[in-house]
Design a binder for these strands. Structure first.
Length: 275
DNA sequence: GGCTTTGTTTTATA
DNA sequence: GTATAAAACAAAGC
């Protein structure tokens, strides 16, 4: 499940190989994947002939910058993979879009469940790429401070779980890093945002930054099927303390890790370590 | 064949 | 308009 550290790992893996390449041909095998423009022919026509000028990331979105002010924005959702493959390699059955580049290189968008999306947009049209335009601050960025987190939590009656997963409030946190950050901060996921005191907010701020940067360092979490652009797994799953460990003993205190549903998502926490 | 999975959008309600 | 909760949606594996 690609969250910010997984997406960042993909971006780092494709930046060098892609920058400077020219799009020679585009194949769309599944029309549903293209979120914008509405016409698949227009998508292909607009993309063809463009040169890739850079690759960046915002939240869980991958931004491939193109000549003439165009941007190809990709969201992997649950099972999406952006893969670099030689043109000669047989096409996988879950490959939905193929971008043929010069030098015999393919950028292939694999998507088992067809949830992922690609948007081809001008720079000033980002509001057409789902929630891209309304993303909150990035963890690890100068904008994400203890004070900004305090503002986000203040007076909110909903659960911290729901707040951390809300991309408009903080960008890039998904279910795994959410549960892990709350464990490390010692905060129960069902607490309301407004109930957190100053110390807890400080601990949570630190835990989010720590868990996200560790996730990037270990090149993501390959819990089920995440791989980077070269098909390699990450290793942060070995560092998980609560996610996926429901019913198992807590690493810190030995209590049984609880698995419940909060904000409609499976949520893992230690009833003793988290208050 | 129902249940589970996740990120995001949409809808309903207060 | 805002905050919140819940539902909808995408599809496939088990």
């Amino acid at each position: 499940m690609p969250e910010m550290p997984e997406v960042e790992t993909v971006v780092r893996g494709i930046r060098e190989p892609l920058t400077g390449r020219k799009v020679e041909q585009v194949e769309v095998k599944e029309a549903m994947i293209i979120g914008y423009p509405d016409s698949i022919d227009e998508f292909k026509l607009e993309l063809k002939g463009k040169t890739i000028t850079g690759v960046s990331r915002r939240g869980k979105y991958i931004i491939i910058e193109l000549s003439q002010g165009k941007r190809l924005i990709t969201h992997l959702r649950m099972t999406g993979k952006l893969l670099l493959k030689p043109r000669t390699e047989p096409v996988h059955k879950h490959t939905r879009v193929i971008i043929h580049l010069d030098g015999g290189l393919d950028l292939r968008f694999n998507n088992m469940r067809k949830f992922g999306r690609m948007y081809l947009l001008d720079e000033d049209e980002s509001e057409k790429a789902g929630g891209f335009a309304t993303l909150g601050p990035e963890p690890l960025s100068p904008e994400f401070t203890v004070e900004s987190l305090a503002d986000i939590m203040a007076a909110r009656t909903t659960t911290v779980k729901a707040i951390l997963l809300n991309q408009q409030l903080i960008a890039g946190i998904g279910n795994i890093y959410c549960d892990e950050a709350l464990f490390r901060a010692g905060i129960r996921p069902d607490r309301s945002g407004g109930s957190l005191d100053k110390e807890e907010i400080k601990a949570l701020h630190q835990a989010i930054n720590k868990v996200i940067s560790a996730g990037i360092k270990f090149q993501g979490t390959s819990f089920s099927d995440y791989v980077n652009a070269l098909g390699e797994k990450g290793s942060f799953q070995e560092m998980l303390k609560v996610y996926g460990r429901g019913g198992e003993p807590c690493i810190e205190c030995g209590s049984i890790i609880a698995k419940v549903k909060i904000a409609g998502r499976s949520t893992h926490f230690c009833p003793k370590c988290q208050r």
